[in-house]
Design a protein around this nucleic acid. Structure first.
Length: 304
DNA sequence: AACCTGAACAACCGCACCTCC
DNA sequence: CGGAGGTGCGGTTGTTCAGGT
């Protein structure tokens, strides 16, 4: 039977928002707030819009301090590394980027970053040995499952591919020897695999959203393991590998010899991938300026 | 000038989770 | 405890526009 729709689709207007509608919504919310009920909001305002549509419009477009376009190299790095670490958790990733919305980040990833990363890597691979993407593909969806394994989501596969690519660059031989199936164990523990691959399944969702101490422990372990991946928060032991990986990702993003500095910002050689020492520029909003705090922020999202 | 193609972005859809009764 | 309704999120689709042919 399914649940009832949130609104009457026959009477609700769809499609692009007009300036008048924008103004009505913006004025009302600025004056009265959302009232904690998006469904009722359009009726109060007199808009023929679905409540969900109003919410989306407000969050992605009308809300103050929204930034559009012109992602900086630093933002690129944050998006890429977080995507590899935690997957397509766009709201969490966007929370690390002041003024950016999850929709913006998602669109930016899908239209630019993904192509830039995978495309460049593909180019390079055609001039080197066997493409890691091909290895990943062989282990993916269609081929890895003789009916037994379920196909992974496209998002998961992209992450496998990216992890593989970065991992292989770090250690081409061990990547093949220790990880014949192309499982992105990276460094550290298998927990990182869980963290990487289960972002779309219920286990991690429960863990991430769980309130119990055991769940917190679980998530902390995941965050630790993510840190051990060398992506988020490198230990001193792994620092050199991390730096190498950072440089590699920068190369993938901006090409050889171009070490960022696209906007003349903090990017320099070696690029501010995670700003361990330098305080990140803070411009607005709810951004947490602590260096090396991305995963703390992530944890804070879940009230750990 | 007309058409085609792809990039970029806005918006919608459906699912899962949360809260309240 | 279970169901209903609201909310948040990720995936997908639709639309617009710029550049190329």
């Amino acid at each position: 039977m399914g649940r009832a729709p949130c609104c009457d689709k026959a009477t609700v207007k769809k499609g692009p928002w007009s300036p008048e509608e924008d103004a009505m919504l913006k004025n009302y919310i600025e004056e009265h707030g959302t009232g904690g009920n998006w469904i009722a909001l359009p009726h109060k305002i007199g808009l023929k819009r679905c409540g969900k549509s109003c919410r989306l419009r407000w969050l992605n477009y009308l809300r103050p301090n929204i930034k559009h376009g012109d992602f900086t190299p630093e933002e690129d790095s944050i998006i890429c590394s977080l995507y590899i670490s935690i997957g397509s958790r766009w709201s969490i990733i966007a929370a690390q980027l002041p003024g950016r919305t999850d929709n913006d980040v998602k669109n930016y990833w899908n239209t630019k970053l993904k192509k830039r990363l995978l495309g460049r890597r593909k180019d390079r691979d055609t001039h080197h040995h066997r493409p890691s993407a091909a290895v990943a593909n062989e282990t993916s969806g269609e081929n890895m499952n003789d009916g037994g394994e379920r196909a992974l989501s496209a998002s998961a596969m992209e992450r496998i591919q990216l992890c593989m690519q970065l991992q292989e660059l770090q250690n081409p031989l061990s990547a093949a020897i220790h990880n014949p199936l192309g499982w992105p164990t990276c460094r550290g523990t298998t927990q990182s695999s869980n963290n990487s691959f289960n972002s779309n399944n219920s286990n991690v969702t429960v863990a991430e959203q769980g309130q119990s101490s055991s769940m917190n422990e679980h998530l902390n372990a995941q965050l630790d393991s993510a840190a051990m991946d060398g992506i988020a928060s490198p230990s001193s032991v792994e620092n050199s590998n991390v730096i190498n990986m950072e440089a590699e990702l920068q190369e993938l993003l901006y090409g050889e010899g171009n070490q960022g500095s696209v906007d003349g910002g903090v990017q320099q050689e070696g690029v501010e991938w995670w700003s361990y020492e330098q305080a990140r520029p803070v411009n607005c909003w709810d951004f947490t300026p602590e260096p090396n705090s991305v995963f703390q922020d992530y944890a804070s999202v879940y009230e750990i």
